[in-house]
C-alpha cells in the first residue's frame, strides 16, 4: 500500500502544471526508499523530464511494495484543481491498484474531499542518463530566466545562449529583428537567491528551441532559483531544486545544418 501525505497540496499542483504541457502520460514510480520518481520524454523526443520526490518531501510516506502508477496528467490536473493550495494532500494506492485515491483535507479538518483516478498501463521508453561534467553551470533566479525565455520567444523560435567567463548572453534573431540580453555574475549579499553564479570550464555556445524553454520555465513556480548546466552539442540540464528532491529537464540542443 502507498500512502503519501503532503503538508500542502500546492507542491503537487505546481509540479503537474509544470510538466503537463510537455508530457501527457507518465508512470509515477513509488518505493519506500526513493519516494516517488518519474521520467518522461515529450513526443518529439527533445525534452526529458526527471522528477524525484524523496520520502522527506512528504509529511508522511509509506510504500510497502514498489508500485508504478500510470497517470494521465490532464486528468490528474483536473483532480488536483479541486483542492486548495493549503489543503493537506494524500495519495493512496493499493498494492495492485486500478485507481489512485487523492484526498484533500482542509487544515481546519472540517472538510475532506476524495477523488479516485483511474490508472493506466503506460508503455514508456526509459533512457539512461548518467551524471556528467558540463562545460558550464549557471545559477540564477528562476523568474529572471523565465522572463528572458518568454520575452525572447516573441522574436524567434530559437534562443542562442553564449556563456563566457562572467556573463551569459541570450540572443534571438527572427523576422522582425534581433535581440539580446546579457546577464553578469554577481553576488547579492542581502538575498543570496538573487545572486547569479557562473562556473565555467569552457565557453559555451548553444541554441535551443524557444518552445521547449518556455515549457521548462513553467517550473519557476517551484523554486526560486534554477541551475542550468550546458555543454556544447550535448543536452542541457535545467534543475529546479525541491525540498528533498528535484525537477530536472534535459533538453537537446539545435545544431546548424
Amino acid at each position: 500500500m502507498l500512502e503519501g501525505k503532503f503538508e500542502s497540496a500546492s507542491l503537487m499542483k505546481r509540479l503537474v502544471e509544470a510538466i503537463k504541457d510537455s508530457v501527457k502520460l507518465c508512470n509515477f514510480n513509488c518505493s519506500q526508499t526513493k519516494g516517488i520518481t518519474l521520467q518522461a520524454i515529450d513526443d518529439s523526443r527533445v525534452l526529458l523530464i526527471s522528477l524525484k520526490l524523496d520520502p522527506g518531501c512528504f509529511e508522511g510516506f509509506r510504500c510497502d511494495k514498489n508500485l508504478v502508477l500510470g497517470l494521465d496528467l490532464e486528468s490528474l490536473s483536473k483532480v488536483l484543481k479541486q483542492g486548495n493550495n493549503e489543503d493537506y494532500l494524500t495519495l493512496i494506492a493499493e498494492d495492485a491498484p486500478d485507481n489512485l485515491l487523492v484526498v484533500f483535507e482542509d487544515p481546519k479538518k472540517d472538510r475532506i474531499s476524495e477523488f479516485s483516478l483511474k490508472l493506466m498501463d503506460i508503455d514508456s521508453d526509459v533512457l539512461s542518463i548518467e551524471d556528467m561534467d558540463h562545460d558550464c553551470s549557471i545559477t540564477l533566479p528562476s523568474s529572471d530566466f523565465a522572463k528572458v525565455a518568454r520575452d525572447m520567444r516573441t522574436l524567434s523560435e530559437s534562443l542562442q545562449i553564449l556563456v563566457t567567463k562572467d556573463s551569459v548572453k541570450f540572443m534571438a534573431s527572427g523576422p522582425i529583428g534581433t535581440g539580446s540580453v546579457i546577464i553578469k555574475a554577481h553576488t547579492d549579499l542581502k538575498d543570496g537567491k538573487e545572486s547569479i553564479k557562473i562556473d565555467l570550464n569552457k565557453s559555451v555556445n548553444v541554441t535551443f528551441g524557444a518552445k521547449y524553454l518556455n515549457d521548462i520555465v513553467k517550473a519557476s513556480t517551484l523554486a526560486e532559483t534554477v541551475t542550468i548546466k550546458l555543454t556544447n552539442k550535448i543536452p542541457a540540464l535545467f534543475e529546479f531544486k525541491l525540498q528533498g528532491g528535484y525537477l530536472r529537464y534535459y533538453l537537446a540542443p539545435k545544431f546548424d545544418e
Binding site: V46, S128, T207, D256
Partner: peptide
C-alpha cells in the same frame, strides 16, 4: 538553418 537534435541521439534506452 537550425535543426533539432533528438535525445535518442545522446542517451540509450534502458
Amino acid at each position: 538553418k537550425n535543426t533539432q537534435f533528438n535525445l535518442m541521439d545522446f542517451y540509450e534506452l534502458i
